[in-house]
């Protein structure tokens, strides 16, 4: 493993936390190394946000421990605050303050010397291209710019560990890619990043991914290895009249009846089908006889297939 020599920057051991009647986090172990981008993915209510709050010390665990740079997050103190940057899902900025005022506020919170603040502010403004908007109120920023400002405020004190809760929710694709480029750049410089996301295309961009469900990790690996371990067969069904949505819908209804078909979704003019490996021969026999105009070609499984399979099994 490439990063095995590094000590973990962020570590969870046997973390548990009950919220009301649910075990929101039910025994979580994970590590994030310096220079690693780790994605925590899972459906709504899987416990991602609670896990992040435990990891940054905002919630007290019922059992287990979280450490940042080897320091227990429950010990608190200045060492932890300096090591950690956290961007929550909901509004973390002051809407009635300007971009520049928000940054100054967070710099004061972390006690940055004025000269250091000016230098880092300039760097971050340039990196995020927020310089043009420095006098705009945070509440008047677009979704993408708001997230970039929140990220800048979380980075001002140069943390070694950055924890992000759904950083791209509501952000358009261009700003989203800019945010990702920014993250890759920071990670290349050695920052450890843990982010939670409900989006599978984003999970596929992480170095390592943990699939969370019902408070636990169902699987953890690189995205490529998770996809490689996918045991079902994925096919693309090409229809004779790809332009006719009615034809696609009719085909979908027929294929959905098949017991060996696990999942079905439109893709392009055709249908993407996930078939149980044990039933694959049966499926191809059925297919050959079903409609002379349909054609079948193999496609690679993707991360969403893996996710849906694991979640379906677990529930």
């Amino acid at each position: 493993m490439t990063g095995a020599a590094h000590a973990p920057a962020l570590e969870a051991r046997g973390l548990r936390r009950r919220l009301g009647i649910t075990d929101a986090v039910a025994g979580l172990d994970l590590t994030v190394r310096p220079g690693e981008l780790y994605g925590l993915v899972g459906p709504d209510g899987a416990g991602k946000t609670t896990a992040l709050r435990l990891l940054v010390g905002l919630l007290v665990p019922d059992a287990g421990e979280a450490r940042v740079d080897g320091v227990s997050v429950m010990s608190g103190g200045p060492a932890l605050r300096e090591a950690l940057g956290y961007m929550p899902q909901q509004f973390s900025l002051y809407g009635d303050l300007s971009v520049a005022e928000n940054m100054r506020f967070f710099a004061d919170l972390f006690g940055l010397a004025p000269a250091i603040f000016r230098q880092r502010e300039a760097e971050l403004m340039q990196l995020t291209r927020l310089d043009r908007f420095r006098d705009r109120r945070a509440s008047a920023l677009s979704g993408g710019m708001y997230k970039k400002l929140a990220l800048s405020c979380a980075l001002l004190h140069r943390p070694r560990v950055l924890v992000l809760d759904e950083p791209t929710n509501g952000v358009d694709p261009v700003s989203r890619r800019e945010l990702w480029d920014l993250l890759y750049q920071l990670v290349d410089e050695g920052l450890a990043v843990l982010l939670a996301t409900p989006y599978m295309d984003e999970a596929a961009r992480c170095h390592r991914v943990g699939l969370m469900y019902a408070g636990k990790l169902l699987a953890e690996d690189t995205p490529a290895a998770l996809v490689k371990g996918f045991d079902d067969v994925t096919w693309l069904v090409h229809l004779s009249d790809a332009a006719d949505p009615g034809a696609r819908d009719a085909a979908e209804a027929r294929l959905r009846e098949r017991p060996e078909v696990r999942a079905l979704s439109p893709q392009g003019g055709g249908l993407r089908v996930v078939v149980d490996r044990a039933g694959d021969a049966e499926f191809r026999r059925y297919f050959a006889a079903a409609d002379a105009h349909w054609r079948l070609s193999p496609v690679a499984p993707d991360f969403e297939d893996v996710f849906l399979r694991l979640v379906t099994h677990a529930s």
């Binding site: 459906p43 709504d44 899987a46 759904e166 929710n169 409900p198 969403e304 996710f307 849906l308």
Partner: peptide, 24 residues
């Protein structure tokens, strides 16, 4: 208008199935 912002893949698939039924 951005009907599924922040919704996970399982729920999104269900939502889009309804959308396609409506369209049909």
């Amino acid at each position: 208008d951005e009907p599924t912002a922040g919704v996970d893949p399982v729920a999104r698939r269900g939502f889009w199935r309804v959308i396609r039924e409506l369209s049909r």
